[in-house]
Design a protein around this nucleic acid. Sequence first.
DNA 1: CAGCATCCAAATGGATACTG
DNA 2: CAGTATCCATTTGGATGCTG
Lengths: 132, 132
Amino acid sequence: MANVKETSTNSVNRRFLTSCDMTYAVQLMGGRWKLLILMRLAGGKLRFGELRKFLPNITERMLTLQLREMEEDGLLIRTVYAEVPPRVDYALTPIAHDLVPICQHLHSWGASHRKAHVGQASPMAHTEAVPQ
Amino acid sequence: MANVKETSTNSVNRRFLTSCDMTYAVQLMGGRWKLLILMRLAGGKLRFGELRKFLPNITERMLTLQLREMEEDGLLIRTVYAEVPPRVDYALTPIAHDLVPICQHLHSWGASHRKAHVGQASPMAHTEAVPQ
DNA sequence: CAGCATCCAAATGGATACTG
DNA sequence: CAGTATCCATTTGGATGCTG
């Protein structure tokens, strides 16, 4: 496309509109997918297709968008290998790693709250396995 | 108002579509405002107008919507006093209180990440367009 | 004071088809 | 394999006016 499209997925636009650190954190990790991606990558780097398998309900488009934003925000490193077929993997940056324990607390909180409130929690822990 | 409008802001709809505890937590506390509301209420109950003052950028409509959802999700208690003028206050439930320390960690993370990462970008850190 | 109703714009999320 | 492009649906956010 000749039309150079300034995507609205611009980290400069997304990141600096607040002076509140909490709002900033929410902007970086908010949305439906980023915390799940972070948890998946906590165990080590993964390829695009592996992430997709672990997040069964995400579309390719959304996974791509979220990964790009997280990369722009300094949360992960994208490595492209010059091979055929193509290979790309994603790894957390140290700063993103700092967030992992916080996410685990959030996960535990969700588990206990859901158990207390719904009466039953699924044993599948981190796995997003909603049948569609 | 014979027209019964089934709002989509139904907690049953919002809450039980996942079998992943992390997704569940994200659904409860996701969005732009809920974590900020939670932090504000961590110090004790507040009235609607007080919350609004502390969250200068939120509209009345959004504050109302977020508070209602959090109430439906068992995160806060809404108390209406039979007075004129009306008085309503909001207080966290124990379960929401459990989330407070996690939020504080997230806040600290946001602060250090922003300091580390935005150091080169813009000096607008604590002063500019968005008050607070 | 603490809201609700209405209308509207923007952002986000998704289905499907296609590609280097 | 790892994405793009396009179109569409849903959700979120906001401006304004009104009310018990």
